[in-house]
């Protein structure tokens, strides 16, 4: 090996790292070369998020203000009597524009779901990692706590929490979080158990790496793919849970709206006004489908063995 070839190697800042870090937006999109569906899913998600974020600028009508003469209009491309943007998704029982309500409702649904799953994911994963890695009585106590919390019917506990704390968006998030962290803890723990006794961990211990270094540097990156899958699936679950709570009157309070609350409110008109439940339902379904497709791509991308070279 000549000296020149060593010189060639010098510019590498940290060997190999750069392979995981796409530099620039072009390289990021180049990663989708083998999975175009995931790219489509990501774009749809972007659009849904963008619409939700920019709802105040995009929505043609005030989502809370109804026009009683325009009640329960089916979807139409014609302008309403008073002028303005056509009610392309129809109007509800109070004459409010469904399209505008979907835009604003998405904000609430997505905020609640992401906040709940985010807190649950971090909290549950850390507990699961500790429980799985240390084992023994730490594991025993943490897992019994998980068992006890899981053994209560989730909806009942959430209702009790909201009843005590009072219905509001913040309290809804607290109630759903209390119910939702266990699956992440269980998942992380079971994944850690498969690695705890592995030669990889032994090798990391042999070179003197600290316990946090092993857990967060080697174990977590190797088990993150199934955890991300659960994260994405749980997003859907929490959007549904928020809808349930809102439907029962313990979640989002009118005049605020969420996709779940819209389905709940539209339920009694389902025979005569199909658009009230259909469009929010499509939004939930589309969001979940795209999250799943995107989650799948992330899982593949995180795993160098399944990545196509």
């Amino acid at each position: 090996m000549s000296e020149t070839s060593l010189q060639d190697l010098k510019p590498i800042p940290s060997p190999g790292r750069q392979i995981y870090k796409p530099k620039g937006i072009i390289r990021f999109f180049a990663r989708f070369k083998y999975n175009k569906i995931a790219l489509v899913a990501l774009i749809i998600l972007f659009v849904i998020f963008a619409i939700s974020i920019f709802a105040p600028y995009l929505a043609p009508y005030d989502p809370a203000k109804g026009v009683l003469t325009e009640r329960l209009r089916p979807p139409t491309l014609e302008r309403p009597a008073g002028g303005g943007f056509p009610h392309i998704f129809g109007t509800d029982q109070q004459g409010r524009d469904v399209l505008s309500r979907i835009m604003y409702g998405g904000r609430v649904s997505l905020t609640v779901a992401f906040t709940v799953v985010g807190i649950c994911f971090i909290f549950g994963t850390v507990l699961g990692l500790i429980s799985g890695y240390f084992g023994g009585w730490v594991d025993m106590i943490l897992m019994r706590v998980v068992d006890v919390v899981s053994s209560f019917p989730g909806l009942l506990v959430a209702l009790a929490f909201v009843m005590v704390l009072g219905p509001s968006e913040r309290n809804l998030i607290i109630a759903l979080t209390v119910n939702g962290w266990m699956i992440h803890a269980r998942m992380a723990r079971s994944q850690v158990l498969t690695l705890r006794e592995s030669a990889m961990v032994e090798s990391a211990r042999a070179i003197g790496l600290s316990v946090p270094g092993i857990v967060f540097g080697h174990i977590l990156p190797n088990i993150i793919s199934p955890l991300i899958t659960v994260f994405v699936l749980d997003l859907g679950h929490q959007i549904a849970a928020e809808a349930n709570m809102s439907f029962l009157g313990f979640g989002i309070q009118p005049p605020k709206s969420s996709w779940g609350l819209m389905i709940g409110e539209g339920r009694q008109y389902i025979a005569s006004a199909w658009w009230l439940v259909t469009f929010p339902g499509i939004m939930i379904g589309l969001t979940l489908l795209c999250l799943n497709l995107f989650g799948n791509w992330v899982r593949e991308e995180f795993d160098p063995l399944s990545r196509k070279q």
């Binding site: 060997p15 190999g16 592995s198 990889m200 990156p221």
Partner: peptide
């Protein structure tokens, strides 16, 4: 092979002990 962290490249695997200490 089973003792390697498969998401790390050879340089990271060999250099890790030096980094840790």
């Amino acid at each position: 092979f089973s003792s390697f962290d498969l998401r790390k490249c050879v340089g990271d695997i060999v250099g890790e002990p030096l980094k840790v200490h």
